[in-house]
C-alpha cells in the first residue's frame, strides 16, 4: 500500500560555523516520513538527532537541501508563517520541562488549540479526551510540578496529539525517565499511533526504545548509516 508522505528531506544539511571550524550537525540527509509511521531516529549523543528533528519541525532552517512538509516546500517562509505551520501541523515533545508551570495540566493541553482560536468549551472537552487517552483522568486541574516526570511527559504527549497534527516530533522523550517509565511512555505513544494512526518521529539512543519503532533510521555524525527494514513490534 502506497502511504502518504508527511515529511521529506532531500540532501539536507545543517552546518554551524564555529571558532573550531565547521560543525556538520546534519550532513546531507535524505529521508521521508510516511503517514502513520512510528519512526525512530537512533544515534549516539551528538550525532545530529535533535538537529534533524528541529529541521523537520520547522524550528530550524537547513544550510542546504530541501524539506517538504505534506507535499509542500517550506523554504523562504517568514518567522510568523513558520510559527503558524508548527502550530497547525506539528506537535513537539521534548526531553523534559515541556510544560508551562503556571498553566494547569488541562490548560497546557489546551494551549495550542487556544492559539488556533478554538472556543473554550470545545478545547476543554478535547483536552479531557486526550488526557483520558494518556491515562491522566482527574489530573486536569493539577499544576505540572505536582506530577511525576513520567506523568509530565504524558501531558506533553496529550498536548502534542490534542490538535491532531500531521506529525509529532519527540526528541528523546524518555531520556529523563527511569527505564520502566520510559518503556511505559513509549508503549503509550505506540498505542496511540496504532489506534489513531498518528504519525510519530522520535529520537533515542536507548536500544530498548528503538525496538518499539515500526521503522528505524540510524544517524551518525550527521549522516544516515543504513535504513533498517521494518522492525516487528
Amino acid at each position: 500500500m502506497q502511504r502518504e508522505i508527511v515529511a521529506k528531506t532531500i540532501d539536507v544539511k545543517r552546518h554551524y560555523e564555529t571558532k573550531g571550524g565547521c560543525v556538520k550537525a546534519v550532513d546531507g540527509v535524505t529521508m521521508q516520513v510516511e503517514a502513520g509511521e512510528f519512526l525512530a531516529i537512533a544515534g549516539p549523543s551528538g550525532s545530529g538527532k535533535s538537529t534533524l528533528l528541529n529541521l523537520l519541525g520547522m524550528l530550524d532552517e537547513p544550510t542546504d537541501g530541501r524539506i517538504r512538509l505534506e507535499g509542500r516546500d517550506i523554504e523562504g517562509l517568514s518567522r510568523t508563517e513558520r510559527a503558524r505551520i508548527r502550530r497547525d501541523h506539528i506537535g513537539f515533545i521534548f526531553q523534559a520541562y515541556n510544560l508551562i508551570p503556571v498553566l494547569t495540566v488541562a490548560e497546557n493541553v489546551e494551549y495550542v488549540m487556544m492559539l488556533q482560536g478554538q472556543d473554550t468549551a470545545s478545547r476543554r472537552q478535547r483536552a479531557l479526551e486526550v488526557l483520558a487517552e494518556v491515562e491522566l483522568e482527574g489530573k486536569e486541574d493539577r499544576f505540572p510540578q505536582e506530577l511525576s516526570g513520567g506523568q509530565q511527559q504524558r501531558v506533553a504527549v496529550a498536548r502534542a496529539i490534542a490538535s491532531r497534527p500531521a506529525l509529532i516530533l519527540a526528541d528523546e522523550p524518555t531520556a529523563n525517565l527511569d527505564s520502566k517509565t520510559a518503556i511505559a511512555l513509549i508503549d503509550m505513544m505506540e498505542r496511540i499511533n496504532r489506534e489513531q494512526g498518528t504519525t510519530f518521529v522520535f529520537s533515542t539512543h536507548d536500544p530498548r526504545i528503538m525496538k518499539r519503532s515500526s521503522r528505524m533510521i540510524r544517524i551518525c555524525d550527521g549522516k544516515l548509516e543504513e535504513e533498517a527494514a521494518e522492525v516487528l513490534v
Binding site: G57, L59, R79, T80, A83, R84, I85, R86, R87, D88, I90, F92, F94, Y97, N98, L99, I100, P101, Y111, V112, L115, R159
Partner: peptide, 16 residues
C-alpha cells in the same frame, strides 16, 4: 527562557 522556547515550538508567534 526555556518556556519561551517551548511556546515558540508550539507555534506561538513573536507577536503573541
Amino acid at each position: 527562557h526555556r518556556e519561551f522556547g517551548i511556546l515558540m515550538a508550539l507555534g506561538t508567534s513573536d507577536r503573541q
